[in-house]
């Protein structure tokens, strides 16, 4: 764990006064968020809340209108090698003519720098990452032949070979089969066990309590953030989701025994 001189651990990600706008419409408004090292954090909120934008703004994929982001106490640009990114599965064309192994190898490109090609060492790492997500048998498969869950696991493997300590994942559980969900959860727990930090944009409220340590409730503004027990409460969810609350019954795990996971 990276600590300050005082001995206090540096936050994995520190977001201050972050505002992002598309045109004149603010998508994120004055966001403050501290993500501790070594925990699994879910970013939760309704559609259009800016969850994906928050991740992309941290990664400097969308321009910030205002605000500061620090990663492990440094500006993101200086800490880029510490951050791995799992984009939404639908963000690429899966009919692209390439193999599973090739996609995973892209995770090593940042380390390789310009022009250098992945070699035997990178291939070995990519195979190990594929084993971790249970996809080693598919290494030579053309990517268009994969199911949605398998695509997601390939993206996860690609992030794993980035050898980062902070992992930003955009909806890794979106539309995947039960087996993939289990595989991803296992990988997340392994990452946490070795002290890594994971931030997931997450949709399924009923699994927040089971999968994550901390939660950030977002709806353009930051509604609440902190340990799941403190922040993932019905009043906060009501604030985040507005009037659309009937479906929230039971998801926070407080209302009734057995209601939550």
């Amino acid at each position: 764990m990276i600590r300050r001189e005082s001995g206090a651990p540096v936050p994995a990600i520190e977001v201050n006064d972050l505002t992002v706008a598309y045109g004149e419409q603010p998508v994120l408004w004055d966001i403050d968020l501290t993500i501790r090292q070594g925990v699994l954090t879910a970013i939760v909120g309704p559609n259009g809340a800016g969850k994906t934008t928050l991740i992309k703004a941290i990664l400097e994929l969308v321009p910030r209108a205002a605000g500061r982001v620090e990663v492990l106490g440094r500006p993101y640009r200086d800490a880029r090698g510490e951050v791995a990114y799992v984009p939404q599965r639908g963000s690429v064309d899966w009919d692209f003519p390439t193999s599973v192994l090739d996609v995973v190898l892209m995770g090593t490109y940042g380390r390789l720098g310009w022009i250098r090609r992945p070699g035997r060492r990178e291939r070995r790492e990519a195979m190990q990452a594929l084993e971790k997500v249970g996809m080693e048998a598919f290494a030579d498969r053309q990517i268009s032949q994969l199911s949605g869950g398998q695509q997601q696991r390939v993206f996860l493997a690609r992030a794993l070979v980035q050898e980062a300590r902070i992992h930003l994942m955009d909806e890794p559980f979106q539309g995947v089969d039960a087996r993939t969900e289990k595989a991803i959860v296992e990988v997340l727990r392994e990452l946490r066990a070795r002290g890594d930090t994971v931030v997931c944009v997450h949709h399924a409220l009923q699994t927040v309590r089971e999968y994550f340590d901390e939660v950030a409730l977002l709806n353009v503004r930051m509604i609440a953030a902190g340990p799941v027990d403190e922040a993932f409460t019905e009043p906060n969810l009501r604030l985040a989701y507005g009037g659309r609350v009937p479906f929230l019954q039971g998801v926070t795990g407080f209302e009734a025994p057995g209601g939550g996971p």
Binding site: L61, V83, P87, V92, F96, Y109, R116
Partner: peptide
Amino acid sequence: KEFKLLTFDREFGVALGF
């Protein structure tokens, strides 16, 4: 390698620092 990255997943390339 760079052209392949650009063609398949441009944003990932940006995140990698290219």
